[in-house]
Design a protein around this nucleic acid. Structure first.
Lengths: 198, 198, 198, 198
DNA sequence: CATGAATGAGGATTCATTCAT
DNA sequence: GATGAATGAATCCTCATTCAT
């Protein structure tokens, strides 16, 4: 005899997908891939366990979808450095990485934790090559405009990337001084630590 | 309810401990803390499941013991840079980190994967402060002898450490060019990437 | 790692709960708390091991739920003596206890076996105080109406309760002659065994 | 090069047996049959796990041996009531039971907990029949000497025994007032609770 | 689309028992 | 006699996945 005259505010499929992904973000980030429980994802998403499986066929697929969605987000975020002045771009790159890590600490942490998960491989390669391309672009611009010295770009770019990534890692690990360290890294990358003689 | 078994006492307790630790190294490194199964550790160690518990009361203790034992190993390994010339020491530091990562890829990978595991905290802090100390020593020496320019050591040291760690991370992640990249990092850290004007 | 199963949803949740409780009754009663295996409860309930945990979060909770449910049952059963004539009430009390023990032998046996289990304490105290109250009521009535002699009720009630409980214990232990012994206890409690002189 | 010049104070086999039995007493009593661990018995006995198996082939046998040894002890303790005056003997019986329960609370508690363990059956029957015999003796004496009224001894004896046992059970369960309750039981058994009319 | 009860393999841990020393 | 490391079955509990409703 119970009738609901006002229709339950139903989610569209897309809403549900989004909710699940958002919940997955929290749960995976908080406990790692192995430690994450589908039930927790379901609870946090306000959906039933079975409901998840309508949108994602396995835990693995859910995880991958999460990574994909976050990567898009990140690429958009980092893209803005593309048409800045070289030195400025480098600074912006470092800051962007660190900002992103601050905003999405748990996700970046997750990437680290699952850095060698086999299923991540294709996605990871996509990501790396795109990041390397951006940095190569910056270095090339700098050399072309005479701001940066002559370097073998293909060797230098990965190293610059490493340094930036290392800073992020330190932030995740120790958690302090993101701002001050980004300044310092910028300065060291530009000038080195050696005394300029002559 | 009646159980009958036939124990095989072939090893000394110390042997078993070592075997278990070695097996734990492989299993934890390969699958992370949560993903590692005690049964797999046992199989790989050539001991029974119960046998592990004679030497390590819980999975957590086993993991911690593994970390402790490896940290000692690493500290010994890295200690040799202490009394080198500053620039040389920096190069040696980078190489040592990378060498270690090459030799013990899976272990270093494990550190990354479990970088935020609560139980690791005390051990991690010990490690970090000891590494920072070493680098501060190198920088100080360099400044004292006029090889390095004036820097705020307390800000520079963590950044240098970050860069080295970033390189290790890249090696783990992409796996190529350890040698060539270590050269490049050394050079960039010393000279920066900017054109020296004047 | 991949699991595929085929659940059989034939019962309502309430049915399952009831089935599990019934199975728990048998298993706990038969083997005691420590000796009881969740798997056996599951098998007997016609449910999977995991299924139990949907309704009862731990073995301890299952046990407690069982005790609670049975205590309610018993209190209903014993309540009817409240408004009888004193002597009649005493007889009914003895009979009720014994009847209950006959009907639910294994459960009462379980109470005995786990009489000092820490987790039972609150429940036990509830039970004891309620039983003592009933008996004090009977004795008071009897004294008021002059059927029973003057006694210190607070001392007598626990002893009467002990005697009844002892009879139950004997039934559980030896298993014979419930009927005849209840008569005898009634008579001895009323008249004692001493020769009435004068 | 370590020599022990003074010979280790070695135990004889009998000593070890006794130590094990004493340890078993504590462990079994404290945790019940299923909950008791052989290792704990060993530790408490100051012997190795394997050592126990020299004296007792299984856990079950150890338990039985414990019961046997304690039963002998009890029979000796209770035997002294045999040649007292009837009423006095009854009082002594109640007190003895209660005293014993006070002294060996945990053991008596164990009997209760494992009261239906199949392996205990033969021992239990032995015990019961001996206790019933003693009580029948007291009642018979009392009737013969005219102190007690005419009763069917075979029906009364088990009931008297039940009452005594019930008192012990109450002591174990609630733990208070052993002294005061034994007085009360004695009085009620002798006189009953009914008003003596006429 | 959504639900959530059900499944059962698998995980960490315990423990009676054995046997080489 | 005595030791204690070793065994492995068994315990409680978790969780990815399925499917009747």
């Amino acid at each position: 005899m119970k009738q609901s005259t006002r229709p339950t505010a139903k989610r569209t499929g897309d809403d549900s997908r989004r909710d699940i992904l958002a919940a997955a973000y929290d749960v995976f980030a908080g406990r790692g891939y192995a430690g994450a429980a589908m039930r927790d994802v379901a609870n946090r998403a306000g959906i039933s366990v079975g409901g998840i499986y309508i949108y994602f066929p396995t835990k693995e697929e859910l995880y991958l979808a999460l990574l994909r969605s976050e990567m898009e987000d990140f690429n958009l975020y980092i893209g803005r450095v593309a048409d800045m002045e070289p030195a400025q771009a480098l600074k912006a790159l470092i800051d962007s990485y660190l900002d992103y890590a601050v905003r999405k600490t748990k996700l970046v942490s997750l990437h680290l934790k699952e850095h060698d998960l086999e299923i991540r491989k294709p996605l990871k390669e996509l990501f790396l090559s795109s990041q390397h391309r951006i940095i190569r672009g910056i270095l090339q611009d700098g050399m072309d405009s005479g701001v940066f010295r002559k370097m073998e770009i293909d060797r230098a770019a990965p190293v610059v990337f490493s340094c930036v990534r290392g800073l992020v890692l330190s932030y995740l690990s120790e958690g302090q001084g993101a701002g001050t360290q980004s300044e310092m890294l910028y300065e060291i990358l530009l000038n080195g630590i050696m005394e300029k003689t002559g």
